[in-house]
Write a protein that binds this DNA or RNA. Structure first.
Lengths: 236, 236
DNA sequence: GAGTGGTCTAGACCACCTG
DNA sequence: AGGTGGTCTAGACCACTCG
């Protein structure tokens, strides 16, 4: 039997994720929620604390609880211009699928060891190339174990984003990211795709995202050309 | 005037950091703290929640609040053996100072822009080489603005660690880490220090740690040879 | 001034752990 | 059985924001 603050927490989270309360919108006040759910303020505040910790809302004294969807980013996501670590300018980022996402069996010699649950399934495989200012900078392979995602291709990606889709349609949240990072020389294929001389240094990242589903992780391998752009991360 | 839960929070934190309550030790119970500080349990629990969030304690129902010092690590800290991303074995890590830490003026063309406060001071400069299993893998330059740290060299580093020293002696906490990462070919000097062929790919990381002192950051540049070991990070 | 979130009190009952 | 943390109630006063 779910606890009261959990009920409230999930209700509010659903309202936010489904857009019932839009970004920038304001949640019902704490006293209001007390009345609606017939609980005391400490129970309401416990639920709201969870939302704050997960980055769904920000509270402002005198105003209210404001919905924000700029969730705290996990690890390396952005790129920064070489010459702009001291300055600031916006980069234009674009992604293209090198092939349409498909179901695949597990490859041999996968870079992490999948869980037993995961091994029973096949994978959804994404093969994307990311551009900054129209220059290719990162090749990304993403592997999502197909655990209850059989209808994944029935709808397009929400906002073009895999993680948004997983959150909105399947309530799959990323809890943790572990990364293994290495510098490698570009082989001829990477050299071609990333438009850089053979042998030039690339960054290779293996990632495992753990999720709120027991025994379900998402895996990625990334090849980055950092000749012109830094890989940047802001971690809390 | 400090709030009651802040008083309790700082008292407990100090007890933990100074070792009055050792790692693995148990804090006074919540009811006990209520009596000691003449506050109610919700106030005590608010203070303990902060300690939990900062990783100082873990609570166990039926037992108590247990002190733990394995603070959650920020970003890239550990190394993992090349062949062991799939397995697990412990690496032996060792650091040596290539020169004793000294006060220095700010270098020209520093890789980040220091704050105005920082620019008024000099720097404490650390120059360390890190080994894994007796092989050199990382060269680290660390720059700490000397804001109220004039007596820094009066005592040795606590536990040999810069960050432990800052926390224990100056109550300086790391709040945030931003990193800029790049793959570069080894120049002759790096090649010599890290014992790797010239031109082989290295990882270069610029870091800015923000602290709980307004306008005080700590800066590092890291050169990593990932030929044999991955750089690993586990981020929450 | 009315409403918001921030702090705090003084209780209560429960689930869990240990002697 | 007695103590621990987990949940929850029913209030109170305060600081802040906004019309």
């Amino acid at each position: 039997m779910p606890l009261q603050y959990e009920i409230l927490f999930h209700d509010l989270k659903k309202s936010i994720l489904t857009g019932v309360i839009p970004e920038g919108g304001i949640l019902p006040s704490e006293h209001e929620l007390c009345r609606e759910y017939s609980v005391t303020r400490s129970t309401v505040r416990k639920a709201l604390d969870l939302l704050v910790n997960e980055g769904y809302i920000a509270k402002k004294q005198g105003k209210g609880s404001i919905v924000q969807l700029n969730r705290k980013s996990l690890g390396l996501l952005s790129f920064r211009g070489f010459s702009e670590v001291l300055g600031k300018k916006e980069q234009k980022i674009r992604s293209v699928f090198l092939q349409d996402p498909i179901f695949l069996p597990w490859p041999k010699n996968f870079f992490y060891r999948p869980t037993k649950e995961e091994q029973k399934t096949n994978l959804i495989f994404f093969h994307r190339l990311r551009f900054v200012d129209e220059e290719p900078v990162m090749l990304e392979h993403t592997y999502v174990p197909n655990i209850g995602l059989e209808d994944f291709f029935d709808q397009p990606l929400a906002e073009g984003s895999l993680f948004t889709t997983l959150r909105q349609r399947y309530e799959i949240e990323i809890l943790n990211l572990s990364q293994d990072i290495k510098a490698i020389p570009a082989d001829p294929q990477m050299s071609y795709v990333l438009d850089t001389p053979p042998g030039s240094p690339l960054i290779l990242i293996y990632r495992r995202y753990s999720t709120n589903r027991e025994n379900m992780n998402i895996y990625s391998s990334l090849y980055c050309n950092t000749g012109k752009y830094f890989l940047s991360s802001e971690t809390e």
